[in-house]
């Protein structure tokens, strides 16, 4: 069988996507790679976790994405007293009708910015993660579907850990990608300092894409060809993570699926109808980094570990 990839995207969709990426890059200065990853995550249908210091532009990135994608946007600042019902919504008794009416919470949106997710208590975290995994929430026995596309950008502050509940490994797995932004480089910082307030810039943005187009892009993403040779490569990476002596818990099959989906999205963003190993390598650190369970006395950090895995796995 000589199966070939689906033809590249329709021209209008491709242009819209390229415009969207460009536009976000005008707001988030000097971070093309991170912006690309955010789009990868969106197109692959996953959720994004940004782990970084305050003030490096996590929120700006989320705002810019929402404005560019034309998605409904809600922001929830997670605090230690935030309850699950504060984000999911609550059933309120209506005396006239004599029934409970469900008042949806901020979760019922298309792009949710969950700011400082590790400040909320585990119960609230897991309510959110539940919704992320299922695409629906159940309140008082009624199931409410979340309108697709549903995309969560969560942020986490890695340093100030007093009074936080860091997400456990098992829940980190729900995020397709984890990345950090880091300080902008010199030029980008100068440009940013010299320009007007980011909020004004964001307010001036016009949507380049809509929900329907995002769904179409996601469909196209699923159609990107991953040849047997590439799947072999992905498998070899997974196996390497499981055999590595410093790693206690290797990558799960779910991580493998996430890796492949992200690689497809990366290929699509690069305008290719098929995945190449470089796509896998580009997303691997961000898919694998937070999923590897390191041994108790591991003497290596995750970044180097991921690099080692990539280094040790031959491409076919």
């Amino acid at each position: 069988m000589n199966e070939t990839a689906t033809p590249p995207l329709p021209a209008d969709l491709r242009d819209a996507l390229a415009r969207g990426v460009r536009q976000v890059n005008t707001v988030v200065l000097g971070k093309p790679h991170e912006v690309r990853l955010a789009f990868v995550c969106l197109l692959a249908g996953g959720h994004l976790l940004i782990e970084d210091l305050p003030g490096v532009g996590k929120t700006t990135l989320a705002h810019a994405l929402a404005a560019t994608l034309g998605l409904g946007f809600q922001r929830v600042q997670f605090t230690s007293d935030l309850l699950p019902s504060d984000i999911i919504g609550v059933g309120i008794y209506e005396r006239e009708a004599g029934v409970f009416k469900f008042h949806p919470g901020p979760l019922f949106t298309q792009l949710l910015l969950a700011d400082e997710i590790n400040r909320a208590m585990p119960k609230t975290q897991s309510a959110l993660l539940e919704a992320m995994a299922e695409g629906q929430v159940t309140v008082d026995g009624t199931t409410h579907r979340l309108a697709p596309p549903f995309f969560v950008v969560a942020t986490q502050n890695p340093l100030d850990l007093a009074g936080t509940w860091p997400l456990p490994d098992s829940q980190l797995d729900r995020f397709m990608l984890r990345m950090s932004l880091g300080y902008p480089d010199r030029d980008a910082e100068r440009a940013m300092l010299g320009a007007s307030d980011r909020r004004d810039v964001i307010a001036a943005l016009t949507p380049c894409l809509g929900p329907e187009q995002i769904l179409a892009l996601r469909q196209a993403c699923a159609g990107v060809l991953a040849s047997p040779a590439l799947i072999e490569y992905v498998q070899a990476l997974l196996a390497a993570s499981r055999d590595h002596p410093e790693i206690r818990i290797g990558l799960s099959p779910r991580a493998g699926l996430a890796l492949l989906a992200a690689a497809r999205a990366h290929a699509l963003l690069s305008g290719r109808p098929h995945c190449v190993p470089e796509d896998v390598q580009a997303v691997f650190p961000f898919v694998a980094g937070h999923r590897l369970g390191l041994g108790a006395n591991a003497r290596i950090d995750r970044t180097r570990l991921v690099a080692q895995l990539l280094e040790a796995t031959p491409v076919r």
């Binding site: 069988m1 000589n2 199966e3 070939t4 060809l225 040849s227 590439l230 109808p273 098929h274 190449v276």
Partner: peptide, 12 residues
């Protein structure tokens, strides 16, 4: 090479 290796299930 990319087309044969990754652009198709089986290289011709």
């Amino acid at each position: 090479y990319v087309a044969l290796r990754y652009g198709a299930a089986e290289p011709t």
